[in-house]
């Protein structure tokens, strides 16, 4: 009860308390949105599954057992059936969540950071720096994501790291755009002028005073983009250009189930359901977060 009062205090005594109070209010607002809560639940389950995969999975995801191949779902010991090598599909999906999460995390740790850097620098310095950086951004925006990723992977060779690299290289431009727009709105404000008068250089102003202002809109975009990253990674895996077998990547699993589509439908269907549910979870969460965090829609 004490903490609740502390969080709800109208006159916070420290910056930390004000932040915590604001976060608490946002959480209350998010909780009112059932779809967003469903998204959060899915995301939490994904995290738990990825963490606990070795304990949850009933079988080894890679060991083959040809005597048990292509068993239908609900077979004893194999709730989702087995694939063409007799591997348990449920176990493969559980372990696959690790790969999906790993790819998403790597992309999320690189692309938005690069975009944030390019966008703030372009917005803050303006002039030819802005012109050059934004032209480059436009050029990358002109490429359809998946096709550029395909071309890059074709050059770099298939594999998880290269897939991450290709996805990151194709997904930074929107972040640069967002960050630049935010930078333009704050760059001429008084507090920036004050910091400059105190002798702060460009790097310090951008790092300490502009980037934090851009973070909320970038974070919203990140959550909304995660589903896209999952789908692109799965698409690369499906084309055989992403994570290589025998690793249980969901897109690659669908691809191998394609041969058995009409007789053993479950081999391709189950991993697709996993992709669908996880990206739906991220989308629902991102949608709800935007309603809560975006000041423009907060009033509605």
């Amino acid at each position: 009860m004490r903490t609740m009062d502390w969080l709800r205090d109208q006159n916070p005594t420290s910056r930390a308390q004000a932040r915590a109070g604001q976060a608490y209010l946002n959480w209350l607002r998010l909780r009112r949105n059932p779809l967003a809560m469903a998204g959060l639940l899915i995301t939490v389950i994904l995290l738990l599954v990825a963490l606990l995969a070795p304990w949850l999975a009933p079988h080894d995801p890679i060991a083959q057992d040809l005597s048990q191949r292509l068993l239908p779902p609900l077979s004893p010991g194999y709730p989702m059936g087995t694939d063409e090598f007799g591997r348990d599909i449920l176990s493969r999906i559980l372990f696959g969540s690790r790969i999906t999460l790993y790819i998403v995390l790597l992309v999320v740790l690189t692309a938005p950071v690069a975009g944030l850097f390019i966008g703030t620098v372009a917005g803050y310095f303006g002039g030819w720096v802005d012109a050059v950086l934004m032209r480059i951004t436009d050029i990358f925006l002109a490429f359809p994501k998946l096709i550029l990723a395909l071309a890059l992977v074709a050059v770099l060779g298939p594999g998880m790291v290269n897939a991450v690299l290709a996805i990151a290289l194709t997904s930074w431009p929107p972040y640069a755009r967002v960050a630049r727009a935010e930078t333009l709105t704050v760059r001429n404000s008084d507090y920036i002028a004050a910091v400059k008068l105190q002798g702060a250089g460009g790097g310090r102003v951008i790092w300490g005073h502009i980037m934090p202002m851009c973070l909320p809109s970038v974070i919203i975009r990140v959550t909304l983009d995660m589903a896209g990253v999952i789908l692109t990674a799965a698409g690369l895996g499906f084309l055989g250009l992403g994570v290589q077998p025998p690793l249980p990547e969901w897109g690659a699993m669908i691809s191998s189930g394609r041969k058995y589509l009409f007789e053993q439908w479950w081999v391709a269907t189950m991993p697709g359901l996993a992709i669908f549910i996880v990206s739906l979870g991220f989308n629902l969460l991102g949608d709800g977060l935007r309603d809560v965090l975006d000041p423009r829609s907060a009033g509605k």
Partner: peptide, 11 residues
């Protein structure tokens, strides 16, 4: 938005 288009095609 959340459906992998190749999977939707197969289904």
């Amino acid at each position: 938005y959340s459906m992998p288009v190749f999977w939707l095609g197969l289904i």
